[in-house]
Design a binder for these strands. Structure first.
Lengths: 215, 215
DNA sequence: CATTCCATGATTGTATCCAATCCGTGGGCT
DNA sequence: AGCCCACGGATTGGATACAATCATGGAATG
């Protein structure tokens, strides 16, 4: 039998997808009645899922007026990336020295997935695999709270990330970065890993800030 | 007329108090029916408030089994304080140079409140004023997301903080620390401020870890 | 005696209903 | 015309009712 899941969890997953895919656009109000209906549930589990997203900063909430998909200002964007950088630096500083050879092997397996996905050009698959790669590294820190905070920051900009991985130049660039990163990890070279991760953020922030400026 | 507030907001405030005061003990299951009844609301707003607390790590949630007041392990505690330290360092590094003379004056006003509260020995008042002091500093960073993350980390250990401010020696110590801190702020001396804040955390972690070990 | 199974009560999950609030709109007044 | 207020539709907030799930304990079985 497939995993018995609560409606609320399913709703949460679906909402994340709709925000990341742009089906729910930044600034837009979430009309609970119609959204709940379109998801095939009542408003109760939907509202609980929205509370979770509110805590992550993916939506904002105004009492008696409802939930709105978060609309980041440039200042918000700068803050999110600054926070990402201090959190990710810490995760790498702690985690890289703890990497086992098995961990490295696992990371290389993920890289194979990423590159395979890149060949097919399936943007969703690339995005997911890229994420798995970076978070597998962060998780080596053994700091689950820290990793969750980093994940929240990534999610916060999902609505703007757009189609970065849709052009082959960007895909090639990503692969190069990943290869540099894994070399640093094999050498357990913390500082290079941190620098590499910073470069990765640099690309990301450029894509996202363009998306924000367009809107 | 006083602020019209939603039930859910009131419930959230009350839950925070009950967790911080130990009325809801770490590890204990939250029985929604009875708690909702004791708060005079139905389960719907209670559940939404619990979702918020779950996002902050104050309670844990197991589908179909319910919510439990978070019970920190020593490893969790270490992680929370490590995260606090990187977040607070950043807030000070950004915020201290931005402090205006007005800000400093405001901080001194708060310190007067803290010391007045200390004289009365009202633990709740001291705790609240102490918190106001530290967060007023953090807020100088103009990084609301960062400040919120720091606040979450403070909240995470509220259930264990106990009666630190109940002994006069500790109160005296706190006042001394605050005076050192404000000197550093007046001098816009980032590094000393960071060191002072680290010392403050050091006290805190000792208190909290004792509380965890007792349980 | 240990183990499995099921019945049962306790608790959570969700749908539905109604109340409270907000917001736009239009009529009346100056 | 411009302003104010009352009203009505749209939407959210919360209470209640019921369904789904889980945990407990005791009976049946080996």
């Amino acid at each position: 039998m497939s995993e018995s899941i609560t409606a609320q969890e399913g709703v949460l997953r679906e909402l994340r997808l709709q925000i990341a895919s742009g089906k729910l656009k930044p600034g837009q109000q979430v009309i609970q009645d119609s959204l709940a209906a379109s998801l095939g549930v009542s408003r109760v589990p939907l509202r609980e899922a929205l509370k979770v997203l509110e805590g992550e900063g993916q939506v904002t909430y105004h009492p008696h007026r409802g939930y709105f998909v978060a609309d980041l200002s440039v200042a918000d964007l700068v803050e999110v990336y600054r926070i990402r950088s201090i959190l990710e630096d810490e995760a790498l500083r702690v985690g890289v020295p703890l990497l086992t050879d098995d961990d490295i092997e696992y990371l290389e397996d993920i890289l194979v997935d990423v590159e395979a996905a890149a060949k097919t050009g399936n943007v969703t698959a690339v995005t997911a695999a890229n994420r798995r790669f970076h978070f597998a590294i962060f998780e080596a820190s053994n700091m689950p709270r820290l990793v969750r905070m980093i994940r929240n920051q990534w999610d916060a900009t999902d609505a703007y990330r757009g189609v970065y991985f849709a052009t082959s130049a960007n895909l090639t660039h990503m692969n190069t970065e990943h290869r540099h990163m894994i070399s640093a990890l094999i050498a357990r070279d913390v500082e290079t890993a941190i620098a590499q991760q910073a470069a990765h953020r640099e690309n990301s922030v450029n894509v996202v800030s363009q998306a924000i400026n367009k809107s």
